[in-house]
Design a protein around this nucleic acid. Structure first.
Lengths: 131, 131
DNA sequence: ATGGCAATGTAATGTTATTACATCAATTGC
DNA sequence: GCAATTGATGTAATAACATTACATTGCCAT
């Protein structure tokens, strides 16, 4: 993987996500970056688009939020499908990869000649600490 | 499963989804029901909440849309986790159930004492017809 | 009849995401 | 050097999705 240098905006957004306890919405990222000159949602969305592309950030579809990748050094794209548990009480997100699930989904798609793009796997519930 | 009789609004919303080719957003459902007296988003969302609860409708988290269950007679809740392929070209949605994936996800959650609530599995891509 | 409950109607607002257009900076080819 | 291109940015406006708050209605069990 060739590591891209991040632009100023991308770096700021990535930093906010990296230092956050849990996932953040685009608008809460925006709020955290007002002091750094951010004024409009688009500044955040544009940076997020790139970070998603680089595999440094994940989008949690079921809660419309974004989270830093758990192992950004390697570029998460290398790991295939990413799945998440999302605690609805404390917001904690855990990222995991399961080749059995991945093979199963790939098989299903292949059988039907469905060309797979992005795959979402998200489990919402309550984490051990919040139970 | 005890089959609930649907209220007027629930029935109207369910009908629209049943007769639709593909998934619909809440607002497009609203538009289709203007002539039946629908005036506000909440009328749609309330009906959808109930239909989701009954297992007659699914919400596609990754595209903010709703689709009628493929086998509503049985109440889809009976089938465990539901997974979807979503064609980004024609909008066609296919619903499927895979016990291997389900066991795998349940196992992961159990190992971490994560109490599973709703699980989302959605594959976006291109269907055979659109390839 | 009345108290409780689920469904409904309506308005307003909150939250998430995109479109459109202008500007700026770095790079490339001539 | 200097257009031409390309990618990033700034700003405003708007679109798309979802919820809160409050009033009303109809039903049914006591």
């Amino acid at each position: 993987m060739t590591t891209q240098p991040l632009t100023r905006n991308q770096g700021l957004v990535f930093d906010v996500l990296t230092h956050s306890e849990g996932p953040l919405s685009a608008y809460s990222i925006l709020d955290k970056l007002r002091d750094d000159g951010f004024r409009a949602p688009l500044q955040v969305y544009r940076a997020l688009d790139k970070l998603l592309e680089f595999g440094l950030v994940h989008r949690l579809e079921s809660i419309n939020a974004f989270v830093a990748c758990a192992h950004p050094e390697e570029g998460c794209h290398a790991h295939g499908i990413t799945a998440f548990t999302i605690c609805e009480t404390c917001g904690k997100v855990t990222e995991f990869h399961d080749h059995v699930i991945e093979d199963r989904l790939k098989g299903f798609a292949k059988d039907r000649n469905f060309k797979t793009g992005k795959t979402t796997i998200e489990i919402r519930g309550t984490c051990a600490g919040c139970a």
